[in-house]
Every structure is written in C-alpha cells, then in structure tokens.
Simulated assay, not measured.
Amino acid sequence: MRRAHDVGGAPGFGPIAIEKNAPVFHEEWEGRVFGMMTTIGHRTFPMRPAIESIDPATYLASSYYQKWLNALEIGFVQSGTFTDDELGNRVELHRTNPDTPVSQNHDSGLTHAARENRYSQRSPKYDGNTAFSVGDSVLTRHIDPSGHTRIPRYAQGKHGTVHALRGVYDLLDLKVQGVRKPEPVYTVSFDARELWGDEAESSQRVYIDLWESYLLLPNQSDKAP
C-alpha cells in the first residue's frame, strides 16, 4: 500500500516547483527546527518513522520543516520527554501570551554533547564480503513493509546497474526498531525509462543509494530471505 510519504512517480501531484535563489530558511523557526532535529532529535528517537507517522492529510499539507516540527513533537512525546498535555499547554501559553519569554537552558555541557553527537557518527564494523561489484546488473526487490524502508516504491522491481560502493551502514529498516545490521550500500543507476516508462527522457538516468538487502541478481527469485 502506498503511503503519503512515498508518492514518487504517483500521478496527480503536478511538477515540482523550483524556487530560484531560495534562502536556506524562509523563517527563523525553520532554522531552530533544523538545529533541534540534527543535534538532539534523531539521537532521541528514530526521525523517519516519526515523520512517516504523521497523518496523511497533515503530511501532504505541510511544508518540509513543518513535517520536521511535527515529527519532533511526535518523537519527544513517544520518548517520554514531555506529554501531549504539556506540549499543548505550552503552545497555548505562547499563543495567548506571545510576549512570554521562551525557556532557555544555557548549559555548555549539553551544547558540547549535542555537537559531539552530531559529528561523531562512525560506520559500523563489517566483516562480510560485498555481494555486488561496480558494473553488475541488479534487480531491486519488491518490499511492502509495515514500517520504514529506504527503497522508494517507484524503484522496486526494477533493473539497474551498480555505479559505486558507498561503504557500510546499518540497515535503517531495522535500526529504527533498535536492531543493528550493517550492510554495504551501493549507488545504483537506472535508466529513467525503466522507472517511469516510455514517456521518460531517453537520455536521463536516476541514481539511488540502496542497501544490499534491497538488491538481487537479475535471475534471482524475489523471495524474502
């Protein structure tokens, strides 16, 4: 079943509006949301599942950073950082009394820890071999998970070519569940017509980073391992 966040290739959404000379942030609050998410949010709870749990109507009507803000609220409530009532009361306080000072915590230790968390990511250890090499033809799997996955629906069941090996990273489908499974990640190149049909431009290619679990040899059966 297609979910609201996975609409690539779906008809009815129109062309992507490209804003020329767009600022990094259109409003000050967007920068604050970016800071919260990248320093503490995704270290406190899985970011993508929180975004994907936003109800479809809200998701489709929200801007990029509105989705992030909604995800922060969902994630912090689910992690026990604060309750729905506490969040609602604070929002109402500032809505009815906009001059109320915003609570701040100038703790240099917390600031340092947040920065260390942000920039101290390491690739996991991996003792296995890679199943594919640059230039190999591959077939992507059909995946219909109940939770998060990194392979978009439009790229499933498609033939492509391994363009590059990007290293080893935890499979995010499982990491968001608290399970670490290091796997090679490949950049796979697809002919645009393979993904979009004959209406796509013949000279265009699409490059997607995919975990090894998503890939098969062209003659392999697409069955769960």
Rank of each mutant, 00 (worst) to 15 (best):
G88D: 11
H148N: 08
T161Y: 01
Q66A: 08
G197K: 07
A131C: 10
E92F: 05
E28F: 10
A131P: 04
S103C: 01
L139E: 07
T96V: 13
F25Y: 15
K223H: 08
P184C: 01
H159E: 05
Q66R: 05
W196Q: 12
G8S: 10
V162D: 07
L174Y: 09
S146F: 07
G128F: 00
A4I: 04
D191S: 12
R193D: 05
G157E: 04
L215F: 00
Q204T: 14
H5C: 11
R166S: 00
E199I: 12
Y169Q: 10
V179Y: 01
D85V: 14
G167H: 05
F25V: 07
F45D: 03
L210G: 07
D191M: 03
L139I: 04
H112T: 11
H163S: 12
R193Y: 04
V188A: 01
G197R: 08
W196A: 15
Y126G: 03
A224G: 04
H42P: 00
G35D: 03
N70F: 12
P46I: 08
L195W: 07
R2W: 11
V138W: 04
L210T: 05
Y214E: 09
R32Q: 10
I208M: 14
G75H: 06
T149W: 06
T83Q: 05
T38N: 15
R180H: 14
T44I: 01
A192C: 05
W196S: 15
A114P: 00
M47C: 13
N219W: 11
Q204V: 14
N105T: 13
A131V: 06
A114M: 15
K175I: 06
A17M: 11
W196P: 00
D222G: 07
V91T: 13
T187A: 13
E52I: 05
G160M: 02
D198S: 13
M37T: 06
E199Q: 14
R205M: 04
A4D: 04
G178L: 11
Y119V: 02
L165K: 08
L172H: 12
D170K: 04
R32G: 06
R153Y: 00
V77Y: 02
L165D: 03
G80F: 09
P184W: 00
G147E: 10
D136M: 08
L165N: 02
R90F: 09
G41F: 06
G8Y: 12
V134N: 03
Q220R: 01
W29D: 02
P11Q: 01
R95L: 03
K158I: 05
Q177T: 09
G8H: 09
N70V: 00
P225V: 07
S63E: 07
P152V: 02
Q66N: 01
G128N: 04
Y64T: 10
T39G: 00
T140Q: 04
E212G: 01
W196G: 07
R3L: 11
E19S: 07
E116M: 13
V185W: 03
A10L: 13
E73V: 15
G35Y: 10
Q104E: 12
D6F: 12
I151E: 02
